[in-house]
Simulated assay, not measured.
Amino acid sequence: MITPEYCQMMARYGAWQNRQIFDALDGQPMMVLTKDRGAFFGSILGTLNHLLWGDQIWMSRFDPSVEAPVGGIPKSPMLHPTLGAWNAARFHLDGKVRHWANSLRSVDLAGDLKWYSGAAQRDVTKPIALCVTHMFNHQTHHRGQIHALLTAAGLVAPVSDLFLMPEDA
């Protein structure tokens, strides 16, 4: 289904996107970041926090060195109170994701992953490759929302085309 090389590319892409989003938002007043804009997770910062929360929960299942975030999905928009706190946590996790992806072997993407899903309120068993693909797809989904929120706020949203990612990203 997927390869370690795919995971490495998507880990690079995610870190590149997150740096661009931070750069686009750096210096914006809290009111701009926290204004409820009608998105599923409310604000720009709420959506960024949910995305970080989702990455943390999935990575905690893939890599035992990553701690699961506190609280469930409903509390995920409040994970970090400021853009600076979000950025520090995001930078740290992006490093963990890249390290994990760079150390993957094909065999690591075979077999099943078993966990208790708070969202589904039950034990779940799914192919690990599907779960990894879901994590990267979840990132893309919410970054699309963030792009729309930035545009609605009158800000310039960063380029998100995968084929435009710099080689050194």
Results as ranks from 00 to 15, higher is better:
A85P: 00
D112L: 02
H138S: 06
Q56H: 08
W16I: 01
P74R: 11
G27E: 12
S117P: 02
F22L: 07
M59H: 04
A89G: 06
W86E: 05
N18P: 06
Q121Y: 01
M135I: 05
A24S: 15
G84Y: 07
Q20P: 06
W100L: 07
G84D: 15
I73Q: 10
R98H: 06
R143K: 11
G95P: 09
T133W: 06
L45R: 03
G84M: 10
Y116E: 02
Q20M: 12
M78D: 12
G27F: 14
G144A: 07
D94M: 06
R98A: 14
W100D: 05
S106G: 15
L48W: 08
G71K: 12
A39N: 09
H99C: 09
V97A: 06
M59L: 11
G111V: 07
K96F: 04
S106H: 12
G72C: 10
G111C: 05
I44K: 02
M78H: 14
Q8F: 05
P127T: 04
R98G: 03
S76H: 03
S60D: 06
N137F: 00
M30H: 13
N18D: 15
W16R: 02
I44Q: 00
T133R: 03
I57N: 04
G111L: 05
A110V: 08
T34R: 12
A88N: 08
A39Q: 03
A88W: 01
A129D: 14
L113D: 05
M31F: 10
L109D: 05
R90M: 07
T140Q: 01
S106E: 14
A68S: 14
T47M: 07
H50L: 07
M59E: 06
L79A: 15
Y13M: 03
G84A: 15
W58M: 08
M30D: 15
Q121N: 13
T125V: 10
Q121V: 11
N137S: 08
H142V: 03
P74Y: 09
Y116R: 00
A24Q: 13
A120V: 05
P127M: 04
G46R: 09
P74F: 10
L113Q: 03
F136N: 01
D123C: 00
H134F: 13
A24N: 14
Q139S: 08
W53R: 00
Q139G: 11
V32N: 01
L104R: 04
Q8C: 12
V107N: 10
K35F: 00
S43N: 09
P81W: 04
I44S: 01
Q8M: 09
L79Q: 14
G118Q: 09
D36Q: 06
P29W: 11
S103F: 03
A110P: 00
Y13Q: 04
G46A: 04
Q28M: 14
M30C: 11
H147K: 10
V97G: 04
Q56N: 02
G14P: 00
P29D: 15
G72V: 12
P81A: 14
M59I: 05
W58N: 04
G38M: 07
I146A: 02
P127Y: 09
T82E: 05
V97S: 06
D108N: 07
I73T: 13
Y13F: 11
V132F: 07
R143V: 03
